[in-house]
Lab assay of single mutants.
Amino acid sequence: CHSECLGNCSQPDDPTKCVACRNFYLDGRCVETCPPPYYHFQDWRCVNFSFCQDLHHKCKNSRRQGCHQYVIHNNKCIPECPSGYTMNSSNLLCTPCLGPCPKVCHLLEGEKTIDSVTSAQELRGCTVINGSLIINIRGGNNLAAELEANLGLIEEISGYLKIRRSYALVSLSFFRKLRLIRGETLEIGNYSFYALDNQNLRQLWDWSKHNLTITQGKLFFHYNPKLCLSEIHKMEEVSGTKGRQERNDIALKTNGDQASCENELLKFSYIRTSFDKILLRWEPYWPPDFRDLLGFMLFYKEAPYQNVTEFDGQDACGSNSWTVVDIDPPLRSNDPKSQNHPGWLMRGLKPWTQYAIFVKTLVTFSDERRTYGAKSDIIYVQTDATNPSVPLDPISVSNSSSQIILKWKPPSDPNGNITHYLVFWERQAEDSELFELDYCLKGLKLPSRTWSPPFESEDSQKHNQSEYEDSAGECCSCPKTDSQILKELEESSFRKTFEDYLHNVVFVPRKT
Rank of each mutant, 00 (worst) to 15 (best):
R165L: 03
C126R: 01
K253T: 11
T254S: 06
D312S: 13
Q339A: 12
K407H: 07
S230T: 05
Q382E: 12
E283H: 07
G131M: 02
E264G: 06
P394R: 06
I134L: 12
Y300V: 12
Y380V: 13
E236K: 09
D312H: 10
G373S: 04
T113G: 07
Y167R: 11
Y223L: 10
F174C: 15
S173T: 09
P284F: 11
Y285N: 05
T353M: 02
E264R: 07
P225W: 15
G159I: 01
G243V: 02
L345M: 08
N320I: 05
L107H: 14
T113Q: 07
E146Q: 08
G159L: 00
W205R: 03
A316P: 14
S319R: 07
D312I: 12
E122L: 13
L279I: 06
G131P: 01
P284L: 07
G240T: 04
L151R: 00
L345G: 06
S274I: 08
V104H: 09
S192K: 00
K407L: 06
R247V: 10
L266D: 00
Y300P: 00
L266K: 00
V363L: 13
S173H: 13
S333C: 07
I181M: 05
I271D: 03
S389H: 13
K277N: 10
L229S: 05
L161N: 00
R247C: 04
L392Q: 04
A251G: 11
A120C: 14
S269C: 14
T361D: 02
K409P: 02
H341A: 13
T273R: 15
S401Y: 05
L143V: 08
I154V: 13
D289W: 03
T273H: 07
S401I: 15
F299H: 11
K253E: 09
L266C: 05
S166C: 13
S338G: 09
G373P: 03
E283A: 10
S333V: 11
N307H: 15
P391Q: 00
S274G: 02
H222I: 03
K242E: 15
I327K: 02
K103V: 07
S333Q: 11
S192R: 00
V359I: 15
E264P: 05
P411S: 14
N255M: 03
D315E: 02
L229R: 04
F193I: 10
L153H: 11
E237L: 13
A259P: 10
N307V: 10
D249Q: 12
P329H: 05
T353F: 13
L107S: 10
S400C: 05
L265K: 08
I357S: 09
N340V: 09
R165F: 05
N190S: 06
M346L: 11
G217N: 05
L153C: 14
N211T: 11
F268I: 08
R244P: 14
H222P: 00
P394W: 08
L133D: 01
L153M: 08
L186M: 10
N263S: 11
L133H: 00
L212W: 11
S192L: 01
Q216R: 06
V170R: 05
P329Q: 14
N320T: 09
S400G: 06
I188Y: 07
L266Q: 04
V381S: 05
S338N: 06
A259S: 05
L186N: 04
R179D: 15
L349T: 11
T215Q: 05
K407W: 09
Y223C: 15
L265Q: 14
D393K: 07
P391T: 02
I135F: 11
L298P: 00
N387I: 05
D115V: 04
K112A: 14
D289C: 02
N255A: 07
L151H: 03
L153G: 13
L161K: 00
Y194E: 15
T273P: 05
D335W: 14
L280F: 14
T118A: 02
D115I: 07
F175A: 13
G348S: 14
T309A: 06
T118E: 13
G313K: 08
Y191N: 12
E187A: 03
V325M: 13
D206Y: 06
N142C: 01
E146D: 04
T254V: 06
L147M: 14
A195R: 01
L293Y: 02
K253Q: 10
W322K: 00
Q245W: 15
R347C: 09
K242F: 12
W352D: 14
P287W: 02
D315Q: 04
L143R: 07
L212K: 01
F296P: 01
D292C: 06
V238L: 11
H210R: 05
E237H: 15
N141R: 11
K226Q: 07
L169T: 09
M346W: 02
D384L: 15
D384N: 14
E109L: 11
D257I: 14
M346G: 11
R124L: 11
W352I: 02
R202F: 12
G295I: 13
S269K: 12
L143H: 02
L204D: 00
P411V: 06
D289K: 01
V390P: 12
C126V: 02
I232G: 01
Y160L: 15
L133W: 00
I271L: 08
Q339V: 08
S230P: 02
L279F: 15
I327L: 09
I163R: 01
R244D: 08
S208F: 10
A120D: 01
S274C: 12
I114N: 01
R281Y: 11
I378N: 02
R370D: 04
R347N: 09
L151S: 02
D289S: 02
S166T: 08
Y191F: 04
